[in-house]
Amino acid sequence: MQTDVLIVGVGGQGTLLASRILGGLAVVGGFDCKLNEIHGMAQRGGSVVTHVRLADRVYSPVIEEGGADAILAFEELEALRYARYLKKGGIMIVNRQKIMPTTVITGAVGYPSEAERTLTERYGAIMLDALPLAVASGNAKTVNTVIIGLFARRTGVAYSDIERALELSVKPKLLEVNKKALRAGYDAVL
C-alpha cells in the first residue's frame, strides 16, 4: 500500500488540518506516514501545499512532481499550479472556488479564464461546490473536511475509518461541525 496525496490551497483554508486527518488514516490503518507542511509567512494568504505520504515505510516527506496519487485542491488556481505533481491516472478533487490573488486584484495579470475546463479535460478533475456544503454544515472554514469526505468516498475508504481519523485530528469543540462537513462531502452528489 502506498498513497501520496498533495493538498493545496490558499493560506487559511486549512490544508494543515486536512493533512492531519489523512495522517489519522495511517493511525487507523497501521501504516507508516509522513506529513509535511509549511508554516510562517506562506500561511498569510499565500499559496500553500502540504504533502501526505502513507506507505509501509516512508522515507522522503516530500512528494515529487508526477508522483501524487491524488491532489486535493481547495482553490482552482492552486489546483492548476500544482497539477504537474499528479501521477498519470491519479485523481484530482477541486473545490469550485476562485480566490483572487493580489497579483490579479491589482490588475498585473488575469485569473486563468478556462481554469475549470483545463482541470477537467486535462487532469480529469472532479469539481465540487464545497463552500455551500461547508456553510450548510455550520462553518465556511470546513471546505477542507468536505473535500476529504469526497476523497474518502472516491478512493474506497470506509466511512467509519475516515470518521475515526477525523476524531483523532480535530479539536473536540469543532468535531460536530467537521463531522457534518465530512458526511456532506462523502455523500456529495456531483
Binding site: V10, R44, E64, L77, E78, R81, T102, T103
Partner: peptide, 30 residues
C-alpha cells in the same frame, strides 16, 4: 529532493522549474 539526487547521479541536469504562466499568489496582510 529525491529527484535532485536521482538527476545528479544520472548525470542529468534537474529540469528547471517551469514557468506555467499562472498568476503568483504571494502572501498578503490579512
Amino acid at each position: 529532493s529525491v529527484n535532485a539526487v536521482r538527476a545528479a547521479l544520472d548525470g542529468a541536469a534537474l529540469s528547471p522549474p517551469v514557468d506555467n504562466g499562472l498568476p503568483g499568489r504571494p502572501p498578503v496582510l490579512c
